[in-house]
C-alpha cells in the first residue's frame, strides 16, 4: 500500500529526460494554448504524431503510454459519443483529441522529470510571488513536509487497519477514519513542536 506513493518519474538518459524542467513545463503550456486554438482533425493528427514521437525519443516503455490511454477512456469515449451525437465527427475529434493529446504530453513531462526538479520549479515560481507575501522557502518546506506526511499517514493507516481487523470491525469506515485522523493529528502536534524547536516561527 505504502509503495503506491512512489513518484511517477521513470528514470532515463534520453534527450527529453535531460531537458530542463522549466523548459518542459513551458512547452506544455504552449501546447495547451495551441491545442485550444488549432483543433481541426488534421491539426489533432499532427499533435498526436508530435506527442508519440516525443514518447519515442524519451524511450519510455509502451505500457506507460497505454496505461494513460486506458485511464482516459472512461471519460474520452462517452465524450466522443456525445460530441458525435450532438455535433459532428470533426468536433468530436477536435474536443476529445485535443485533451487526450494534452494529457499524454503532460504525462510525458511527469514521467521524464524528477520530483525534486519539479519542486525546484515550484519554489522558483513562488519566488516571483514574493511581493504578494509568498515565502518561497516556506513553500519548499511545505512540499517536503507534505511528501514526508504522505508516507507517515500511510504507515498509520496500515496500523489502524490492522487494529481494525484484529477487533473484527471490518465494515466500518468510521472505525477506520476516526482513529486514523486522530493519530495523524497527534503526529502533527509532535511535528509542530519539532518545527517550532527549529525556529520556524521566528
Amino acid at each position: 500500500m505504502a509503495g503506491q506513493a512512489v513518484p511517477l518519474f521513470h528514470p532515463g538518459t534520453s534527450l527529453v529526460h535531460r531537458l530542463g524542467a522549466g523548459t518542459k513545463l513551458l512547452s506544455l503550456l504552449v501546447a495547451g494554448v495551441a491545442l485550444t486554438v488549432w483543433r481541426a482533425p488534421w491539426q489533432i493528427a499532427v499533435a498526436f504524431v508530435v506527442v508519440l514521437a516525443a514518447y519515442a525519443v524519451a524511450r519510455l516503455p509502451v505500457r506507460l503510454l497505454l496505461r494513460q490511454v486506458v485511464r482516459l477512456a472512461w471519460i474520452a469515449v462517452p465524450l466522443f459519443a456525445i460530441q458525435l451525437l450532438l455535433a459532428s465527427w470533426q468536433a468530436a475529434v477536435g474536443v476529445v483529441g485535443s485533451f487526450v493529446a494534452l494529457v499524454l504530453l503532460a504525462g510525458l513531462v511527469t514521467l521524464t522529470t524528477r520530483t525534486t526538479a519539479m519542486v525546484d520549479v515550484v519554489v522558483r515560481v513562488a519566488g516571483w510571488l514574493r511581493r504578494f507575501g509568498v515565502d518561497p522557502e516556506r513553500v519548499g518546506l511545505m512540499l517536503a513536509l507534505g511528501i514526508r506526511s504522505v508516507h507517515v499517514v500511510l504507515g498509520l493507516a496500515e496500523e489502524v487497519r490492522d487494529a481494525q481487523y484484529a477487533r473484527g470491525l471490518r465494515a466500518s469506515p468510521r472505525a477506520f477514519a476516526v482513529p486514523l485522523i486522530v493519530r495523524s493529528l497527534r503526529h502533527a502536534d509532535r511535528l509542530g513542536e519539532a518545527l517550532a524547536a527549529r525556529g520556524i516561527d521566528d
Binding site: M1, Q4, A5, R138, L141, M142, L145, G146, R148, S149, V150, H151, V152, V153, L154, L156, A157, R161, R170, A171, S172, P173, F176, A177, L180, I181, S184, L185, H187, A188, D189, L191, G192, E193, L195, A196, I200, D201
Partner: peptide, 29 residues
C-alpha cells in the same frame, strides 16, 4: 501560520492522499 498550523496542513494533505490510496471500506460489501 504558526508551526503547528504548518504541521496540521502537511499531515492533512497526507490524510487526503491516504483516503484516495487506501481501497475504501465498502459499507455494503
Amino acid at each position: 501560520l504558526k508551526s503547528r498550523d504548518l504541521a496540521l496542513i502537511a499531515i492533512f494533505a497526507g490524510i487526503i492522499a491516504a483516503l484516495g490510496l487506501v481501497p475504501a471500506v465498502s459499507p455494503f460489501g
